[in-house]
Design a protein around this nucleic acid. Structure first.
Length: 310
RNA sequence: CGCGGAGUAGAGCAGCCUGGUAGCUCGUCGGGCUCAUAACCCGGAGGCCGUGAGGUUCAAAUCCCACCUCCGCAA
């Protein structure tokens, strides 16, 4: 099939790559415009653009998908199918209706659970044991369209967002090719989503990142790994400084009689009392510094037993 | 010109404001104690204090200037 690929971040590169290597043809790539990012606001191209250019595929970065301009681009490319992976904008109806085989989305969850922007992070934060990839037809509404194929993976106890991101990236790369192959050959049964089962995985906000030590140690740990290595769960030291956590594990130390967030031991990590049990922080990122191990951080004499993190 | 922090021994930091012998917690090496040890005791090695044949000064890690590099926030 002749594909128009639409995607933006690293996660989309997995799928783009496998489509390029497949029997289908990626005719063009549409991605978000370069945006000022990072320190100093330098203009940075999205990963999909960088990759597509390496592969010599034409890249388009329209400001808007509405209107005549994009529609004429569509006609020029004349794709059989549009594959969308984390593109970052809503596709207007005329675009959805254009390709013969429709617009197909690669979504990082087992729909109808975790529709929305942050399915992988939310699944980990919620302590789920499984997640996966769903390929689906795009429709009005966010991730509400009919489902095509699914692929499930296990979330291991210590998997963080990066682990799941990479696993699902590969998983999605495989599944999208399978989906197109099957569609072209025999077709696939469309499975409507059960609205009653649907949940929504909203974008991660600053508030989501703040660790609530009154939760159980298990849930604190889930939050930390669900947000690592980006954007990272955070707390504050007694001097009011930001302290981000990139690695932790549940600890066997008892927290009874301690305040939530109280540092109860600095042995081999920062043990912090939670609502139920305690967690051992192993990797931290102090404000203005780079990532370091908790033991290095402790060596700089930044924390004492009895200090409260909040 | 988005805002801000930091570059001192292999690691994490202090010292800088109020210039004048380079310090802490670890690691490492050697020795001791111990049935033994990641524990404890003693001792040692390891630093052009980011760069500048820069500026000020009798004297600069410390004050001034320029540059380089790294990082946090914000997007």
């Amino acid at each position: 099939m002749k594909i128009l690929f639409m995607g933006t971040p690293d996660f989309a590169v997995f799928s783009l790559s496998s489509l390029i290597d497949s029997n289908h043809k990626v005719a063009a790539v549409v991605t978000q415009p370069d945006k000022p990012k990072g320190r100093g606001y330098h203009l940075l191209p999205p990963p999909v653009k960088v990759y597509a250019e390496e592969k010599g595929i034409p890249v388009y970065q329209p400001m808007s998908l509405k209107g005549e301009e994009f529609e004429s681009l569509l006609r020029d490319i004349a794709p059989d199918v549009i594959v969308v992976v984390a593109y970052g904008k809503i596709l207007p109806k005329n675009v959805l209706d254009y390709p013969r085989f429709g617009c197909i989305n690669v979504h990082g969850s087992l729909l109808p659970e975790y529709r929305g922007a942050a399915p992988m992070q939310r699944a980990i934060i919620d302590g789920k044991k499984f997640t996966g990839i769903t390929t689906m037809y795009m429709a009005d509404g966010i991730d509400t369209g009919d489902m095509l194929l699914k692929s499930e993976i296990r979330i291991e106890d210590n998997d963080n967002f990066e682990d799941i991101h990479d696993k699902l990236g590969l998983c999605g790369a495989e599944l999208i090719v399978k989906t197109l192959d099957a569609l072209e050959k025999d077709g696939i049964e469309r499975i409507p989503q059960d609205e009653a089962q649907a949940t929504y995985a909203a974008k991660i906000t600053k508030e989501d990142c703040l660790i609530d030590f009154s939760l159980s140690a298990r849930r604190v740990h889930d939050l930390i790994r669900g947000l690592s290595p980006i954007p990272l769960a955070l707390t504050h030291t007694p001097d009011g400084k930001l302290l981000k956590i990139w690695k932790a594990e549940t600890s066997s130390l008892s927290a009874s009689g301690k305040n939530f967030g109280e540092v109860i031991s600095l042995d081999d990590g920062i043990h912090v009392a939670c609502g139920d049990g305690s967690v051992k922080l192993l990797g931290v990122l102090p404000e203005g510094k780079s990532k370091m191990s908790a033991s290095d951080y402790i060596r700089g004499r930044k924390l004492n037993i009895g200090d409260i993190l909040k």
